[in-house]
Design a binder for these strands. Structure first.
Lengths: 257, 257
DNA sequence: CGAAATATTGACAATGATCAACTCTTGTGG
DNA sequence: CCACAAGAGTTGATCATTGTCAATATTTCG
């Protein structure tokens, strides 16, 4: 029964319509699932990528380490996400992927995928869509790191994670499990551990969130979204392929800067 | 004579081999060039992208503005670069593109391109390659913003720009024209204008660079590359499609952090 | 020539980093 | 089942990188 990656299929379907044939092809390329422990490398910087993985359960992240040990996490990989396809295209990856928790993953051979894409072009579209989503999330992170302060970054990450988890049915009300150390949060947010802690604590004290290690709940959505400048509709649009023309807020450069 | 975008063709060729047919197809889609003034929007956030542009001469940037006026520049668009193809795929863009100087551009219709890609799949590969390059540069920027200080960021940007310009023949020795205001630099680097100025001045005083507005020269490549942790071979590998297995430095998380 | 944009510099403020101590969990071996 | 070690979280004190404000060049351009 549970040899089908339900969350993955769900996320794929949410991103755009998939034919029965596409669904079948998707399942066909997947190898039987395995469970790997935390801190397992699924891809390492500079090493040829031969396999992709569907992460059906557990968390991971894409990251890079600087010479002196500083780490930057590019983004988190959540249940239902996958990796490998977009990293495969030409050359060796510029970053690594590791698991952060115990994960249930479905490996797949990239050469198999590539050849199947010939017969079933829809497959390529499916992976392409999520590649685009990743790109949008990367840009969002750049804005975070470049132009938002700690408070805004944290607020935004919480809302982003909530949304992504909600998509695959992993939210309970406005709460969700957050199996990340504050160190991981810090490395994603470009902050120090200590400052992440303080910021979280402060949001807690202000009643905007209810956080305790391992779990978090959004208490005051409105205020939090205001701080984060978080636009749900924009986020959804990025996640799915359904373009909504003109719905994006028309920003202007009013130059308060 | 100059109705052929030489720098563009050069960059495309540098990224991977292109057949005569591919070259022809590329040229076929392009409309006659126009010159646009600085601060011309080539793409605006949320508005459907119908045309792409080859920027044969002049500089532009991809950016986004926050409600309060803060601006984040994602990256710069240099002579020989193009835009539109990767932004076209499904939905409206999450960011804008504007020119920063007077630019000579070759517009092209995206619908035309899409249909031609059917006949000439090589076209798709060509654009795909540069999409990948953009992705790598975005990740690099994330590392910059998240984990490098002002000095490192500035050093790195200088070296990156030098390399990209060198590719299209726009460097003179170790010098190149830098038609960016310090405000633009600041918005790309996630710093304040004042701090960019100071950092530049300091690098100047230390004899690492020779900067005056409008123009910059690298004086002490070694030291600058050391500060920036800039790996030329990695950069080249990202720019071209020629994968070099195992050549990437094997970073370790030694946790000085 | 003069207005506007850009660059430069000093003084001061503040966000966030670092250091350090201490607590709380969690997992492991005796 | 307890003791203890290791990892993770918390908090205070202090430091420092970077931002903000403001005043003053300097350049660009109509």
């Amino acid at each position: 029964m549970s040899d089908i990656p339900l969350r993955f299929m769900r996320r794929v379907a949410a991103a755009g319509s998939v034919s029965a044939k596409g669904r079948a092809a998707l399942l066909e390329i997947l190898s039987p699932p395995t469970t790997v422990s935390p801190a397992t490398d699924l891809m390492v910087v500079g090493e040829k990528v031969t396999h992709g993985y569907v992460v059906e359960d557990g968390w991971g992240c894409r990251y890079r380490i600087l010479r002196d040990g500083r780490r930057q996490i590019f983004n988190f990989i959540l249940p239902g996400d996958h990796l490998g396809r977009s990293d495969h295209f030409l050359g060796n990856p510029d970053h690594s992927v590791t698991t952060l928790t115990r994960c249930r993953i479905y490996p797949f051979s990239l050469s198999t995928l590539m050849s199947l894409e010939g017969e079933c072009p829809e497959l390529r579209d499916i992976f392409h869509r999520s590649g685009r989503r990743d790109l949008l999330m990367l840009r969002e992170r750049i804005v975070d790191l470049g132009r938002r302060n700690a408070r805004e970054r944290v607020a935004r990450l919480i809302l982003e994670l909530y949304h992504r988890l909600h998509y695959v049915g992993l939210s309970k009300g406005l709460a969700f499990d957050l199996p990340l150390t504050q160190e991981a949060l810090a490395d994603a947010l470009g902050l120090s551990i200590v400052h992440v802690n303080r910021t979280l604590r402060r949001l807690n004290a202000e009643g905007l969130i209810d956080y305790c290690p391992g779990r978090i709940a959004v208490q005051d959505w409105e205020t939090l979204a205001g701080i984060a400048e978080f636009d749900v509709s924009a986020f959804d649009r990025a996640a799915s392929s359904r373009a909504v023309s003109g719905a994006w807020p028309a920003h202007r450069y009013d130059s308060a800067a």
